[in-house]
Amino acid sequence: MRPYLKGFAYIEESMPNTLFSTGFAILQGKEGLNSKFLYLLFMFSADLMRQMEERMPKASYPSLNTEDFKEFKIPLPPLEVQEQITHTTAHIEQERTALENTIKSLEGQQEVILKKYLNRNI
Results as ranks from 00 to 15, higher is better:
residue 115 K to R: 15
residue 101 N to G: 10
residue 51 Q to H: 04
residue 35 S to A: 14
residue 44 F to D: 07
residue 122 I to S: 08
residue 23 G to F: 06
residue 73 K to Y: 03
residue 15 M to S: 11
residue 1 M to W: 00
residue 120 R to F: 06
residue 115 K to Q: 15
residue 38 L to Y: 07
residue 5 L to W: 04
residue 38 L to D: 07
residue 77 P to L: 04
residue 80 E to T: 11
residue 113 I to G: 02
residue 77 P to K: 07
residue 76 L to S: 01
residue 17 N to Y: 06
residue 49 M to G: 00
residue 20 F to Q: 07
residue 82 Q to L: 05
residue 35 S to M: 03
residue 48 L to I: 15
residue 69 F to I: 09
residue 83 E to H: 10
residue 60 S to W: 00
residue 87 H to R: 15
residue 97 T to M: 00
residue 11 I to S: 00
residue 47 D to W: 02
residue 1 M to Q: 10
residue 100 E to R: 12
residue 77 P to V: 05
residue 61 Y to R: 07
residue 59 A to E: 04
residue 17 N to S: 11
residue 113 I to N: 06
residue 60 S to G: 07
residue 99 L to V: 08
residue 40 L to G: 01
residue 7 G to D: 12
residue 114 L to R: 15
residue 48 L to P: 06
residue 96 R to I: 14
residue 2 R to H: 13
residue 71 E to S: 13
residue 22 T to V: 11
residue 118 L to R: 10
residue 106 L to I: 10
residue 7 G to I: 03
residue 104 K to S: 13
residue 56 M to Y: 01
residue 106 L to G: 02
residue 53 E to N: 12
residue 34 N to E: 15
residue 36 K to P: 05
residue 64 L to G: 01
residue 9 A to N: 10
residue 102 T to V: 15
residue 52 M to K: 02
residue 57 P to D: 04
residue 46 A to L: 08
residue 59 A to D: 10
residue 6 K to M: 05
residue 6 K to A: 12
residue 75 P to V: 02
residue 83 E to P: 10
residue 67 E to P: 00
residue 96 R to Q: 13
residue 20 F to V: 13
residue 31 E to H: 09
residue 17 N to K: 13
residue 26 I to E: 02
residue 122 I to A: 12
residue 27 L to W: 09
residue 10 Y to V: 05
residue 30 K to W: 01
residue 87 H to A: 14
residue 66 T to S: 14
residue 94 Q to P: 00
residue 28 Q to V: 12
residue 43 M to C: 14
residue 101 N to T: 06
residue 63 S to I: 00
residue 61 Y to L: 07
residue 40 L to V: 07
residue 34 N to Y: 05
residue 91 H to V: 13
residue 75 P to R: 01
residue 18 T to Y: 09
residue 89 T to E: 01
residue 3 P to I: 08
residue 10 Y to K: 02
residue 77 P to I: 07
residue 92 I to L: 13
residue 99 L to D: 03
residue 39 Y to E: 01
residue 51 Q to K: 08
residue 41 L to T: 03
residue 37 F to W: 15
residue 8 F to V: 09
residue 10 Y to E: 03
residue 93 E to K: 11
residue 15 M to K: 15
residue 100 E to I: 03
residue 24 F to I: 15
residue 88 T to E: 11
residue 26 I to P: 03
residue 111 E to Y: 04
residue 4 Y to H: 06
residue 92 I to C: 09
residue 16 P to N: 09
residue 44 F to L: 05
residue 18 T to P: 06
residue 21 S to P: 11
residue 61 Y to T: 02
residue 2 R to E: 10
residue 66 T to P: 00
residue 104 K to L: 12
residue 15 M to T: 15
residue 12 E to W: 00
residue 114 L to N: 12
residue 39 Y to H: 12
residue 112 V to H: 13
residue 109 Q to W: 01
residue 98 A to P: 01
residue 85 I to R: 06
residue 75 P to G: 02
residue 49 M to N: 08
residue 113 I to M: 11
residue 34 N to V: 05
